[in-house]
């Protein structure tokens, strides 16, 4: 009852001091910034390699060669079923026992791009199967070979169909770069938890959240735009 007016203010102060402490922000901004660059680097490499491999596998599957079909489907199913964290731990802590030593960023990149390729293959494949058979027939009937028909007629249509779900999936998997924190990759979350334990403040975690928003929010907006554009095309 003695300080009824001051209590909410001190609460706000405590909130700001915990999550937005200016001293901590200034002290750890360089660490978080370099962590952000690591996240962007691994994330970009994951997107490029994962989508390229997924697209290649989907195109190969269009050929309908039985052995390849089996291998591709196995890859896609296993890749989609396994939690990336499990594979990351196996690669990072298990492989050295058999003499294969990979760096943390390399493990993160390999596992995430492999996972993305499994999802991307299925998304592109769904795009290919949605294309009317008549499109292939029109191409082949005008003397175009299989590969030309694939590249110029089927692929552009499959990519258009695949784009909205692909952007969403790439986003979901690229965010998993945060898993690098368990194997010592100094990406955003790793830099933030380190800073948190040194500073005994939650402010670095707030900074991490903001850094993720800066990196990923544009992609979310892009996904929304693509979905809307696609909806128009259909109408």
């Amino acid at each position: 009852m003695a300080t009824p007016v001051a209590a909410p203010l001190s609460g706000l102060d405590r909130f700001l001091d915990t999550f937005f402490n200016p001293t901590v922000i200034v002290r750890y901004l360089p660490d978080l910034a370099s962590g952000t660059l690591v996240t962007i680097g691994i994330g970009a490499a994951t997107i490029v390699a994962g989508i390229a491999l997924g697209l290649f596998l989907a195109c190969l599957r269009v050929r309908r060669i039985r052995l390849f079909d089996l291998l591709i489907v196995a890859w896609a199913d296993v890749g989609r079923a396994l939690p990336p964290l499990v594979v990351i731990l196996i690669f990072y802590f298990g492989l050295p026992s058999v003499g294969i030593r990979l760096s943390g960023p390399m493990v993160l990149f390999l596992v995430l791009s492999g996972t993305l390729s499994a999802f991307a293959e299925e998304i592109f494949w769904a795009g290919f199967t949605a294309i009317d058979k008549g499109q292939w027939e029109a191409g082949r009937a005008t003397g175009l070979g299989f590969t030309t028909t694939l590249l110029h007629i089927a692929l552009p249509q499959a990519v258009r169909l695949a784009l909205p779900p692909l952007v969403n999936r790439a986003l979901a998997i690229t965010k998993m770069t945060a898993l690098g924190s368990v194997i010592g990759v100094s990406e955003i979350l790793s830099a933030a938890t380190t800073a948190q334990s040194f500073s005994a403040s939650a402010t670095p975690l707030t900074m991490a959240a903001i850094a993720y928003l800066i990196v990923f929010l544009p992609f979310v907006v892009l996904a929304r735009l693509l979905e809307r554009r696609f909806a128009w095309k259909k109408a």
Partner: peptide, 17 residues
């Protein structure tokens, strides 16, 4: 493929790209 160049085909559903 070469012979098909000499055989034009028109489909029921047009099949334009």
């Amino acid at each position: 493929d070469r012979l098909r160049l000499e055989i034009g085909m028109v489909f029921q559903n047009f099949n334009l790209y």
